[in-house]
Design a protein around this nucleic acid. Structure first.
Lengths: 116, 116
DNA sequence: CTCATTAGTTACCTCTTTGTTACCACTAAT
DNA sequence: ATTAGTGGTAACAAAGAGGTAACTAATGAG
């Protein structure tokens, strides 16, 4: 009966999105359109490029996002949500809604223009 | 437009439940009944008592749970979900449902007998 | 008298996560 | 020749999370 955390569904979820930046990165990617690495980096100035690429790699290894690498010079890499990643949308939305309701910040959320 | 993570609703939510053990502890407490420290510790053998009391203190400081301390010897302390904590239930449920769906474990979830 | 009980706290240590800085390879444009 | 643009990586530093063992105090059991 959930003796160890590996059997706990919530812990499993945390294993996927529990990183410090994972949820934000996912939200930036779930717009549906493919996003380039550089664009993500500009949108999130507080996360260094190394950490960003590290988080993206982990998300890809976990099968939540898909990485498209076009062998061009200069390089072009695009990320998009996988089918598995899309199933996370309700979770991210619930987390967003709660955080938005706790303290009403004077800014437009990423969800508003995208998910409506 | 969400330049820094402090303005992001998802990051704010993670600040409340982002710890490794926070969601599990919350789920154990949300049964509605007051729970004693020792019972929680027994239910979650993988979390040390020190970390458990630390997480409980943080959850209390964040206003998610209420701590009832009866000045007895030996001490008796009971925890229950606060009103604010109850608003987290949909989030925890979403996280649970996703984790349960990813890989169907052969065990009964905490939700099943409690939330129906 | 001594031990067990309960819910911690404190000091000390390790392991993991996160962050900073510098650098690469290649092309096109200046 | 040099610079800008792209998507990174390697080496190192810092911060955070988590763990163990020892200690507290009043009462009741043996």
């Amino acid at each position: 009966m959930m003796q160890n955390p590996d059997n706990c569904a919530v812990v499993r979820t945390m294993g996927y999105i529990g990183g410090k930046w994972k949820p934000i990165v996912l939200i930036r990617i779930l717009t549906g359109v493919k996003v380039r690495f550089g664009k993500l980096a500009v949108q999130m100035p507080d996360i260094s490029r190394k950490i960003l690429s590290q988080q993206l790699k982990e998300l890809e290894e976990d099968g939540l996002i898909i990485r498209h690498s076009y062998m061009e010079k200069p390089p072009r890499v695009e990320y998009e949500l996988s089918e598995l990643g899309k199933t996370l949308i309700p979770v991210l939305k619930a987390m967003h809604d709660w955080g938005a309701q706790i303290e009403d910040p004077a800014h437009r959320s990423v969800w508003d223009p995208v998910i409506r």
